[in-house]
């Protein structure tokens, strides 16, 4: 199971994913710039990613608290909080891009 992550410079990285893990945890484990201040509680918005539009429909709809956090963090059309995306077999190969917000907050 894997995630394809595009970093701030647009470079592609293949990350080994684990079923049941949050995408945020996987990206952070690899040392990419995600601070996740709140530890995955959907409360800080620093783990924002942009999901490849081709994958967006495979994800569950964001809950109200995730929408709130995207509001506060300048979310765009394809933005999600990676702490709210949990890896399943269906998401094997998920393509996401680190958001400018995540990179800025981790700087």
């Amino acid at each position: 199971m894997r995630i394809i992550l595009l970093d701030g410079k647009g470079r592609e990285h293949e990350l080994e994913a684990v079923e049941g893990w949050r995408v945020m945890e996987i990206i952070r484990d690899y040392g990419f710039p995600i601070v996740a201040d709140c530890g995955g509680a959907c409360a800080c918005g620093t783990c924002q990613v942009e999901v490849d539009p081709a994958w967006a429909a495979k994800l569950h709809e964001p809950r109200e608290d995730e929408l709130d956090m995207l509001d506060q963090n300048y979310g765009g059309e394809w933005s999600r909080l990676s702490c709210q995306l949990i890896m399943t077999a269906e998401l094997d190969g998920l393509r996401v891009r680190l958001s400018d917000i995540a990179i800025r907050e981790a700087a």
Binding site: E64, L67, D68, L70, D71, Y74, G75
Partner: peptide, 8 residues
């Protein structure tokens, strides 16, 4: 101005 017609 807000990005959606929903508010917290």
């Amino acid at each position: 101005i807000h990005r959606r017609d929903g508010f917290r």
